[in-house]
C-alpha cells in the first residue's frame, strides 16, 4: 500500500508491439476506474517512471502487474524477473507473453540469420557487413545494447506466472471485466480464481461463438482466401479456407469470422489443449474428403506453410518451441 492508500498497478511491455497497451487504453472511461482504485507506479507508454524507480520498490509491493510481450533479449528477461519480484500478482497479458505470438515465428530461423537478413536488405547500405554489437567502443566510451537470445520465450518459460490473459490483443471488454473483478476483490466482494487460471476469456472454442452454418461438409481442396468468393453464412473451413476457430479459445465473440475473415487463433489454445498446432491440425485434417494416400498428399499441398498456419501465435508456447536449425547451434 502506498501513502495514498491505493494498491499499486504496473504494466510493462517486453518484446511486444504495443497493441496490448492500446487495448488497455481502449477501455476508455474505465481507465478512470483504474486511476480511482490504483496507484499506477510503472507504465512506460503512459507515464514517466523509470526502471530505477521499480528497482527501488519493496519486493511484493506492486499488487498487480500486467506483463505483455515475449522474452527476446536479456533486457526483457531482466525486467520480467524484476517485476516478478516486485509484484504479488503477475499476469501474462496478451498472446506475446502467453505463447510468443507472431514474432515467435522467428523461432524457425537461427538468430544470426535473422540479424543478417535485417542488415542486408535491398535498401540497406552496408558494404562492410556491419552488425550491431552488444558492446561497442565509441570514441567517448562503451555503448551497450542487450544480447538477443537464440529463441523467443514465453513469460512463464522465464518466471512464475499467476494468471494468463490471452488475445492479440485481449479484447477491451475482457480487460474491463478483469479490472472490474480485481476491484471487487479489493472491496472484498469477490474472490480471485485459482492461481494458474486463464482469465478474461471463455471456456470453449471460437467455433462455439461463431454464428456461421456448419454442415458435415468435407472438402477436396484448401483454398487461399484471395481466390474464394466468400459465402457470408457458411463455415469458412467448409469453404476450404483455413480457419483456426476449432482450436482457439473463445472470448472474442468470433470477431474475425463475423468479418468474413478466418479466425487466425489469437486467443491461443482452447481449454485442455496441450499443443495448439496439433489440435488445429487434427481439426483441419478431418475435413479432408479422401481415403487415398496420393490424393490426400495432393490436397495437403494446398497448405504450403503448415507451421505458419497452425502455429501463427503459438510457436514459442508449443511442445517443440523452435525449429531445429534455430536452436541447434552445433
Amino acid at each position: 500500500m502506498t501513502s495514498n492508500g491505493k494498491p499499486k498497478f504496473a504494466m510493462y511491455w517486453a518484446a511486444s508491439c504495443g497493441g496490448c497497451e492500446i487495448s488497455v487504453l481502449n477501455i476508455h472511461e474505465k481507465i478512470l476506474d483504474v486511476d480511482a482504485n490504483f496507484d499506477v507506479v510503472f507504465w512506460p507508454v503512459a507515464m514517466d517512471a523509470k526502471y530505477k524507480d521499480v528497482e527501488a520498490m519493496e519486493d511484493g509491493s506492486i499488487l498487480l502487474t500486467l506483463f505483455n510481450g515475449a522474452i527476446r533479449n536479456e533486457e526483457n528477461e531482466h525486467i520480467a524477473k524484476l517485476l516478478r519480484k516486485k509484484s504479488q500478482i503477475l499476469v501474462a497479458f496478451g498472446s506475446c507473453a502467453n505463447e510468443g505470438c507472431m514474432p515467435a515465428l522467428a523461432n524457425l530461423s537461427p538468430i544470426d540469420e535473422i540479424v543478417k537478413t535485417a542488415f542486408s536488405t535491398i535498401s540497406t547500405d552496408n558494404p562492410n557487413h556491419i552488425q550491431p554489437q552488444t558492446s561497442y567502443q565509441a570514441p567517448e566510451g562503451e555503448l551497450k545494447i542487450p544480447k538477443l537470445f537464440p529463441i523467443v520465450r514465453t513469460l512463464d518459460q522465464v518466471v512464475d506466472v499467476d494468471y494468463y490473459m490471452p488475445g492479440c490483443p485481449p479484447e477491451s471488454h475482457q480487460i474491463a471485466a478483469v479490472i472490474d473483478l480485481v476491484i471487487q476483490v479489493l472491496q472484498g466482494k469477490a474472490e480471485l480464481p485459482p492461481k494458474g487460471s486463464v482469465i478474461g476469456a471463455g471456456p470453449s472454442t471460437v467455433c462455439d461463438e461463431c454464428t456461421r452454418k456448419r454442415g458435415l461438409k468435407t472438402i477436396h481442396e484448401f483454398k487461399r482466401i484471395q481466390h474464394v468468393q466468400i459465402d457470408p453464412e457458411i463455415c469458412l473451413l467448409e469453404q476450404g479456407i483455413l480457419c483456426s476457430g476449432p482450436a482457439t479459445r473463445s472470448g472474442c465473440k468470433a470477431l474475425c469470422p463475423s468479418a468474413n475473415s478466418p479466425c487466425i487463433g489469437c486467443y491461443g489454445p482452447a481449454e485442455g489443449v496441450l499443443d495448439y498446432g496439433a489440435r488445429l491440425l487434427t481439426a483441419v485434417a478431418s475435413v479432408i474428403d479422401s481415403n487415398d494416400p496420393n490424393e490426400i498428399q495432393h490436397i495437403i499441398e494446398g497448405i504450403p506453410d503448415p507451421v505458419g498456419m497452425f502455429y501463427r501465435f503459438n510457436l514459442a508456447g508449443s511442445l517443440l518451441r523452435a525449429s531445429k536449425p534455430a536452436w541447434d547451434t552445433k
Binding site: A15, R72, E75, S109, V115, T117, P132
Partner: peptide, 8 residues
C-alpha cells in the same frame, strides 16, 4: 531491440 520480421 530487433524482432526480425524481414526474416520470419
Amino acid at each position: 531491440e530487433l524482432r526480425g520480421f524481414e526474416r520470419f
